[in-house]
Amino acid sequence: MWVAPPLKGGSNKIMGSDALIYSVLIYGLVNGAVIMLTSLGFSLTFGLSGVANLAHGGIYLLSGCLAWILLNTLGLPFLPAAVITMVLAGLLGAGVYWLVLQRVRGLALSEMIVTFTIGIGILEFLRWAGFVTYDFNLPVIIKGSLTIAGVIVDYQRLLVIGVGVLIAVLLWFFSHHTKIGLALRGMAQDEYTALSVGIDSDWAAALSMALGHMIVAMAAIMILPLGLISINVGYDVLTMVLAVTILGGLESTAGLTLASLILGYATAATGMYLNPQWTQVVYLAAIVLVLALRPSGLLGKFKELEERV
């Protein structure tokens, strides 16, 4: 994973084993929050409208590049740049829905093909446009760091944890306790019934796409400062979302949180003890293990849903 902590596998000779354990504990939490924040947008769109937005990685990176352009080329201050990026990402989501997805709505296979190709198109466009060098990085929001139990953690990572938890709670509240959220969830469960009680299906799906994209943009602005902007990040994001969804199930927020934490600690541990390169192997192993042992995911919610179909 690209949010590798500042110490690598070789450093365990310098550090005591206690410090190593503490750093795994803390960075596992950080990684978990990063993973959760990145996957939330995907999970939200899927949960609310049933659209598997495979353009996720593309949007993630596009938001990062957009923010970079706003900050560096146009010289805007951070906050307006972040807000504009999120709004643009949201509009893009709604636009993609109205222009393309609406026409293939209900054809699950076509929906996936379309979002997938849009994502690849965006990523490869960015590669072509030259966002591959090491010049591109976003500024951190708060500089500085603090030391917890002998482990140095910078404020940005703490902020990621905070924002991740905050958004997860807000989304849960939104989808379970507000009128719009309930309407959207009803939509995802039974489109015809929802239509018959006066929920506009297209409006709801476009809204869920826009919301999902805005959260992705926010995640990009929060997380990208921890590393470099590179095209591979866009592909890695989707792999990560895949691992999280397979581990935790597509629909449940609790499953997502749990899976993020597990993967966070697993990647932190491999990053510390082995080599950051191995984190992708961890994802693969997690996917294969879960599919082989417990295909319904850890919390096993979707199996029930499938049975009822």
């Binding site: 598997a52 495979l54 996936m112 969804t245 390169q277 992708q280 192997v281 295909p295 499938e306």
Partner: peptide, 27 residues
């Protein structure tokens, strides 16, 4: 293993596998 699950998981897995295998071979 993924053939037991709904279509979306198959799509996601086939998408991720080439990327993951690349990383595994690299690592």
């Amino acid at each position: 293993p993924v053939l037991r699950l709904r279509g979306i998981y198959f799509a996601l897995i086939t998408f991720a596998m080439p990327l993951l295998l690349t990383r595994v071979i690299e690592a």
